[in-house]
Amino acid sequence: MSSSSIQNNQLQQWKDDAIASPGFSEFVQETLALTKRLFIQLQRRPSTLAAGIIQPLMWLILFGALFQNVPQGLFGDNVNYGQFIGAGIIVFTAFGGALNAGLPVMFDREFGFLNRLLVAPLVSRFSIVIASAIFIAAMSLVQTAAIVALSAFLGAGLPSIAGLGLMMAIILMLVLGVTAFSLGLAFALPGHIELIAVIFVANLPLLFASTALVPLSFMPRWLSTIASLNPLSYAIEPIRYLYLHNDWTLSSIVMQTAWGEISMGMTLLLLVIFCVGSLALTYPLINRRIA
């Protein structure tokens, strides 16, 4: 060990220039590095990916079988339950993944790894949120592809190419919004026990209080009101419409809520608002100096 190798003159020079001026490329650099870590973890623990794909397919098959014998036409003209449930499973799967995004961050916090990030000169701690969101989004898209493929195999058909593109956009917005929310919780709650409790309480009730399993028209008034407020419904209904109608436009009416008709474009707008709102809510939480 020679003491001359401790200092690096080139680095010293770079440091003197760099300290004052972080920019967008630095934000991209830190975000990509954090994302890469998540993908390395996935690559070395492939069981996570396997379970992530098998689980929604089991949902699809089991729910499809449960309602196989409902009278034809109950969920709409010429619609079988397999076609109906696909959109629900896609959204529920993406939502579940995003809702759990805060858990690894919470464990990082508890093991002290997060401090490594918090003492670093990150341009913005949003890079932690974006990295998680990119990772969850990639997972969700793989899961969605699997669900779409199995649904097609089970006879639900395929949306158009444009429809698939729109479906991706909807999933990405939902994932970003919910991931931000979950990471905000990971910074705000005392520990993983509390976070798991919140996830547990939020997950299934939000599924049942959405249009994932049955349409609004099946629900009692109070539940359909809740489901009309549930962001999941605003992701499920447009995807479902894409599945059932190849001739969709942004002005197609995709939802009949308690307070009126909602168009495809409107659901997208509401999802954007949900996303921005969730990020805005998260911002002060992740920028706290936590103990």
Partner: peptide, 12 residues
Amino acid sequence: LQAAIYHLPGKL
């Protein structure tokens, strides 16, 4: 990872 969160350029 550490180098990237301190924004060291690739070669450096």
